[in-house]
Design a binder for these strands. Sequence first.
RNA 1: GGCCCCUUCGUCUAUCGGUUAGGACGGCAGAUUUUCAUUCUGUUAAGAGGGGUUCGAUUCUCCUAGGGGCUGCCA
Length: 503
Amino acid sequence: MNRLRFAPSPTGALHIGGIRTALYNYLLARKNGGKFILRIEDTDQTRYVPGAEEYIIRSLNWLGLTPDEGPVQGGPFASYKQSERMSIYRDYAMKLVEDGEAYYAWDSTEDLEKMRQRLTEKGVPTPKYDASVRGEMKNSLNMTSEALVEQLEQEVPYTIRLKVDPGQSIVIQDKIRGEVIFDSSELDDKVLLKADGYPTYHLANVVDDHLMEITDVIRGEEWLPSTAHHILLYRAFGWQGTMPTFSHLPLILKPDGHGKLSKRDGQKFGFPVFPLAWPSSNPEESIDGFDSYGFEPEAVINFLAFLGWNPGTEQEIFSLEELINVFDPERIHKGGARFDYDKALWFNQQYVQQMSFADAQERLTHYAAEEGYNLQMADLESVFNLLKPRVHRLIEVIPQGYYFFTDALVYDEVEIGKKWTPEIGPLLEKIAEAVTAVEPFNHEAAGAAAKEIIQYSGIKMGVVMPLLRAALTGTTQGPDVFAIAEVLGKVKSVNRIETLARR
RNA sequence: GGCCCCUUCGUCUAUCGGUUAGGACGGCAGAUUUUCAUUCUGUUAAGAGGGGUUCGAUUCUCCUAGGGGCUGCCA
């Protein structure tokens, strides 16, 4: 049975790149009857953002990617928060030191700065803390055991660094990219344990993946370079026999193709990059999400699944269940994919068209209330059915059909002015009169009655119809005029026609 | 700069040596619609460049170019 984890850092809202990573992990776990695990990698005190962990959990739930094990569900390998596993990492780091695979270091930020500068001046292409310089630094490798004991007794905070032996080649078998080879001479002696006692990503991630019996690591491409370090760690611990497989996902790029999509791009390009909105007391810091834009979670999933992957058939609409069946990690693309908001809208439209009123009712009610509209004024189901084919997002139904929820029409004066002539007023009166006589009142009958009057008047259909529409809705575009009239009801329709006629 | 990854229509992608290089989004045109939207039909548009390998390369390989990632006591 395979075990996959999604391991975000609670440093803020999770953007869709992270969501896609979670999705692929989820899909592969479900496909093979395995487990999907959420692990919170909160090892950076300085970047911790309150509420971020809860946000991640809510986002996954909204999308239907509920973990089998995690901070909420618990599980056999709890805790699933790295900040609650501190002693574990320390113990493993110490084990590495004892085995000679790692060492203590007391270099200050300034020391490191100076070292890098010195190497740069010497023309070293990649200045780094490695075998070539560690002999000159303040670390336990350069101390007698007596000096080390003495240093340790002073309790000066230290880091623990991985001792990377140069000259070995490290082969990564990536499921997406094939063999990727690094030379350990290019690698630095990575910090494993920070001076504040927290582990770095590299240590915590490898230790937890091992302890939690993770079988497959699916993560973003930004991790590919450091995978070499991770493999060295597996070797140092003697865990190479149970090392997980690695799959490094292509990145999601900005719409203009320059760089990976970042959190601020939503603001910049005018579309959501987060699953859920992140409200803030300061409106300028509030950010929108696919939810607040009115997207269906199923559509977001579907869209994201296709960013860098496809089933090889021409079917594009897949439920989460269907994706589980058809998902094949071997079909993941290698190149980065640009975020295309139009395509996202199209996916969402497909889902909206499939919605029943029962699916939509609660949210429509909510949207209408937010706009301050009176839901008693119209039959919401009729409004939904009338407007559904015209929208990409459910949230558009309310503003598009605003005239069903208020009598305060906003007239499109420009268009009305263009068509208006003195004969129009009396004609509208006549139409109102004819429509009043229609019984039962429905769009066919009302339409027939009105059209008869118009034809008899000799005024062009193309002039009267837009004005009739304006009378009912204020606007000159929208669904069939008489279909609107039917939903509005006879009394209100007649009233509105007379109102415009007598202006 | 160094290391690594990537490269098919504007965008997402199919093709696993032989195809009129297919689909979707977008765009354009037409039909439907009294309007707008929807829907339908049609259409537009691609293998970065150059060497190899091969009877034959989009497909394998090399070089170049371009893009991206990493290069922190961040993840």
